[in-house]
């Protein structure tokens, strides 16, 4: 079971003088339970790819398969939709109901589930994002703080119980604690339900910390995909694409430049563990 991108190309305004390839010949697979971080500049094709995986755009070349269902085919697409949850940038702008509980229930209700099942899902989802039903269920979504609104919007997607959760910059505009709450929620959801996560982010630190695999996009092409250790070793490549390395990588490089033999590490914990251990033996 997986999302498979098979040589996917998408051209905006195909056939016109303004036609432009947003993504070209992408081959990528997201296995069940994966945590894939997607990084790249504005205009690298990340958001187009998100829409292709959610079936909102149809590829102009190649195929997108979700658990074997071809999103290019209308019937199969309909069957695949509930398996993929999309969270767009600033999802709180899409909150619209009178109460948080109603807003979270909107998706599952439309799936045609029984009312008891809808309510059970709403309760679970709200619990997961840290907005307990009994305290927040009857509140207006518009009375929530920025971070809470974001979590309410996330709960609406989680309540659909997708097998694949795809998030486009889910932490943008949030304060540090809000960012952390969202990241922990996503990681917790994955652990609890086993769903796969695809997260587009500009924060190298967050991607380094949470992703199992990283895909690097540039000008619509997949430049490299691999484990964080592999990706962050490609210092020169990332720099040439205008991407900043996470602080622990840069610190490790600065120490190597001074003659210290630092292994490839990309998280704060790993670098600290190495340096502290080294201190004991010297």
């Amino acid at each position: 079971m997986a999302i498979q991108l098979q040589n996917v190309t998408y051209i905006y305004m195909e056939g016109s003088v303004l036609s432009q390839a947003a993504v070209s010949d992408i081959r990528l697979e997201i296995q069940e339970g994966d945590f894939l971080g997607m990084i790249g500049h504005t205009g690298s094709g990340k958001s187009t790819l998100v829409q292709l995986m959610g079936g909102l755009l149809q590829p102009t070349g190649g195929r997108v398969l979700v658990d074997g269902l071809d999103l290019g085919d209308k019937k199969q697409r309909k069957a695949a939709r509930p398996r993929v949850g999309l969270v767009f940038q600033y999802p709180e702008y899409q909150l619209f109901e009178e109460t948080v509980a109603k807003d979270v229930a909107y998706g599952p209700h439309n799936l045609g589930l029984a009312p008891e099942e809808v309510e059970a899902r709403v309760r679970r989802a709200m619990e997961l994002v840290g907005l307990p039903y009994d305290r927040f269920g009857e509140k207006s979504p518009f009375a929530l703080s920025g971070g809470e609104k974001r979590r309410a919007a996330l709960a609406g997607v989680i309540a659909m119980e997708p097998r694949y959760l795809i998030l486009d910059e889910p932490m943008a505009g949030l304060d540090p604690m809000g960012r952390k709450a969202i990241l922990e929620t996503i990681a917790g959801l994955r652990q609890e339900t086993g769903c796969a996560v695809v997260m587009v982010s500009h924060s190298m630190e967050d991607v380094a910390q949470y992703a199992q695999r990283i895909a690097v996009l540039h000008q619509g092409r997949l430049v490299k995909a691999g484990a964080p250790g592999e990706i962050f070793q490609e210092e020169a490549l990332l720099r040439s694409l205008g991407l900043e390395l996470p602080v622990p990588c840069r610190l490790a490089a600065a120490l190597r430049a001074r003659g210290m033999d630092v292994p490839p590490v990309y998280t704060e914990e790993a670098l600290a563990a190495f340096l502290l251990e080294r201190g004991k033996h010297v």
């Binding site: 610190l251 704060e268 600290a272």
Partner: peptide, 15 residues
């Protein structure tokens, strides 16, 4: 205050 240290400062604090 709901804030965090910048990554470099946090790294130093961790050490």
């Amino acid at each position: 205050a709901g804030l965090d240290l910048p990554p470099v400062v946090r790294m130093g604090a961790l050490l």
